[in-house]
């Protein structure tokens, strides 16, 4: 039982981290960024390349270089996200919202198969592996590395939340989410703020990518697709656009999958998770923490 919960929370932490970027971008410009999962993939490969380049420099220490690589990767994927927004999304900001869906899917293909061209289709294996010293925590088998990863994820999420709720920058983001025209009138540089939101969201996805690479070991060019889908789901469960809600949504999805596997077996897991999700949404149509918006008067 406690093992099930731990499995779910651990997977859920990854979902949350990726979902946050989804949710932020969605909250601010109402864009389903289908390429977001591919930024996770990009992060994993960027980390892979850096670790490979660093090679023997760090010697036998693993955690410190990983943290350095993590930060560098976050910067790199953040910039990639900004570039993506600049090229594929910003020019279309006045167009019908679904037009952005096309460029998002286009960007997703371009990123995936661009990486396919660069790195090939064969999965790559991370040079640094977080092996496991297992602890027994309330009957669940937990490794120290898992704990560290979850702590990093939680720390990143808290930082983000503080940034969005407490800082000027965050206020600007929320203002744009509410009303971009009014925000502009109040002297907010909308484009710059949106760029920064993309930077933050993409950096988090990149961080999740490196962490997944270092923990699971295997990365490939399509690794972002499924998790992108799950992150979208998690963001919606939580109440899309709502940051604490998204974190909860990710964890909840992880738990649903863990228990679904246990009760119904692996092949019915996603049916269970989606089924519960649909039932849940019919009861609570705005997600866990989403506000009830009056839709138009």
């Amino acid at each position: 039982m406690s093992q099930l919960i731990w499995n779910g929370l651990f997977v859920g932490a990854f979902y949350s981290l990726v979902a946050l970027g989804y949710s932020m971008v969605y909250g601010i410009i109402k864009l389903l960024n289908f390429a977001h999962g591919d930024l996770y993939m990009l992060g994993a490969f960027a980390g892979f390349a850096m670790l490979g380049a660093a090679g023997g420099v760090f010697g036998s220490m693993t955690l410190l270089p990983l943290l350095v690589v993590l930060v560098l990767t976050m910067a790199a994927t953040g910039l990639a996200g900004v570039a993506l927004e600049r090229v594929a999304y910003r020019p279309l900001r006045g167009a019908p919202r679904l037009s952005l869906l096309i460029t998002a899917v286009g960007a997703s293909f371009a990123l995936e198969y661009g990486m396919h061209l660069v790195a090939g289709a064969d999965p790559r294996v991370y040079p640094v592996r977080l092996g496991g010293t297992t602890l027994d925590l309330l009957g669940a088998r937990v490794t120290v590395q898992q704990l560290v990863l979850v702590l990093i994820a939680v720390a990143l999420m808290i930082v983000l939340n503080v940034l969005v709720t407490r800082s000027r920058e965050g206020r600007a983001m929320r203002a744009i989410a509410l009303d971009p025209r009014a925000a502009r009138l109040m002297g907010i540089d909308v484009d710059a703020v949106i760029s920064r939101a993309f930077f933050l969201g993409s950096a988090l996805a990149g961080a999740a990518g490196v962490m997944a690479g270092a923990y699971y070991g295997k990365i490939d060019f399509l690794m972002g697709f499924l998790i992108g889908l799950k992150a979208f789901t998690a963001a919606v469960i939580g109440g899309i656009g709502n940051i604490p809600g998204t974190m909860l949504g990710g964890l909840l999805l992880g738990l649903l999958e863990s228990f679904g596997t246990y009760w119904l077996g692996g092949e019915w897991r996603d049916v269970f998770a989606f089924g519960v999700l649909i039932l849940f949404l019919t009861v609570r149509p705005t997600g866990l923490l989403g506000e009830r918006v009056t839709e138009r008067v």
Partner: peptide, 18 residues
């Protein structure tokens, strides 16, 4: 047990537990 996993994922903890 006959256990099915979903291809292309990374975490099979739930299946392993099963």
């Amino acid at each position: 047990i006959l256990e099915a996993v979903t291809a292309k994922e990374s975490d099979y903890g739930a299946n392993v537990t099963n």
